[in-house]
């Protein structure tokens, strides 16, 4: 039996469920490979929480995924009405706090307070919620440093790939430019428009039907999500930008006419996020890309980013926001935190 790592999941939407499932399926394997036994000791969503200090077993984790949206409070016999982090922490003494609440870019809540609370209670933090990092990156990181805990967020940018850890580890490089397709939903919509020759609204409907776009898709289609990712990247590179400083163009302005015109001229239309690191400028813009170029061939829910440094050029291509892929990134963060602790 390996060393126990007690984990709290705060937020239980599609990523939270995917994570519970992946942990259920892989915790034995991770235990035998690395000697780390991941125990989910508590789960919370907007309405309630479920906690079990000795850790939910595989069956219970899979069973948890059957609760309706905001239905953790129905998970008998472990359920509590309402969310109270004090109760969760006092009863379970978690090692790792996993923040999976939705991103909200005005106040950063509830993620911001949750993360600060976790740090103050001495728990390491893994977050897939971008908003707290986008709004208060410095504060969060320095607070964690002062309390001797770490924060990891591999799932926030190109969640299906180890992009963040690679970028973080390129310590001797001067990164000059980062650009690419950072939002899976808008890339899917644009791809639909090209492939099926439909208007934006129909492509959006399709994306919503397939569960790729949210009921309120504005964060994705207006470029807020991509801009948030650039902000996180800028902080990692210690050239911090504010999200308001990033000029954004919404893909809702792209018409079928634009697409047809572009295709006739040998281009495709993409939403490209770019960050000129030295100039300290970034934008999310609608761009006509020659069909032969790499970014023109990254379609559907795929993402792609190019990192250009003074020494090299690296390209990442991978699924952006799928539940299972993102869950694996979160789990990788949990495992690596546990490694560093031992």
């Amino acid at each position: 039996m390996g060393r126990r790592v007690k984990v709290l999941l705060i937020g239980f939407g599609s990523v939270g469920r995917a994570l519970a499932k992946v942990i259920a399926l892989k915790r034995k394997i991770i235990n035998s490979r690395y000697g780390i036994l991941i125990d989910v000791v508590g789960v919370a969503d907007s309405k309630g929480m479920a906690l079990k200090a000795e850790g939910f077993d595989e069956y219970e984790l899979l069973k948890l995924c059957e609760v309706p949206r905001s239905g953790v409070n129905l998970f008998k016999p472990y359920a509590h009405q309402g969310v109270d982090l004090n109760i969760l922490y006092s009863n379970t003494q978690p090692d790792v706090h996993v923040e999976l609440t939705p991103s909200e870019y005005t106040s950063g809540e509830p993620g911001l307070s949750n993360i600060m609370y976790a740090i103050d209670r001495g728990a390491h933090v893994v977050t897939a919620n971008k908003a707290p990092l986008v709004l208060k990156y410095k504060e969060i990181v320095s607070r964690a440093l002062s309390r001797g805990v770490r924060i990891k967020f591999r799932a926030t940018v190109l969640g299906g790939t180890p992009f963040i850890s690679t970028l973080t580890s390129m310590r001797s490089h001067d990164v000059e430019r980062i650009e690419g397709i950072l939002n899976a939903t808008s890339n899917f919509i644009l791809t639909e428009m090209h492939e099926k020759l439909v208007e934006f609204t129909d492509a959006l409907k399709m994306a919503q039907a397939l569960g790729i776009a949210e009921a309120d898709p504005t964060l994705d289609i207006d470029g807020v999500d991509a801009a948030a990712k650039i902000v996180i990247i800028s902080n990692i590179l210690e050239r911090p930008l504010k999200i308001e400083e990033i000029n954004r163009e919404s893909i809702s302005r792209v018409s079928l006419r634009d697409i047809i015109d572009a295709v006739r001229q040998g281009y495709v239309i993409k939403s490209i996020a770019s960050f000129d690191v030295r100039g300290g400028k970034a934008s999310i813009r609608i761009a006509k890309i020659p069909r032969s170029e790499l970014f023109a061939q990254i379609n559907g829910v795929m993402n792609g980013v190019r990192i250009r440094s003074d020494a090299t050029e690296v390209v990442f291509i991978g699924r952006g926001g799928g539940g299972i892929e993102t869950a694996h990134s979160v789990l990788d963060d949990i495992v690596s935190l546990s490694f560093e602790d031992s």
Binding site: R69, G71, K196, D202, K205, Q208, A209
Partner: peptide, 20 residues
């Protein structure tokens, strides 16, 4: 609740399929 969630999704999909 679960069945309602699925039926809502079904309605969204049905709405999209008639357009595409």
């Amino acid at each position: 609740k679960r069945v309602n969630e699925e039926l809502k999704r079904l309605e969204i999909v049905a709405g999209a399929i008639n357009r595409s």
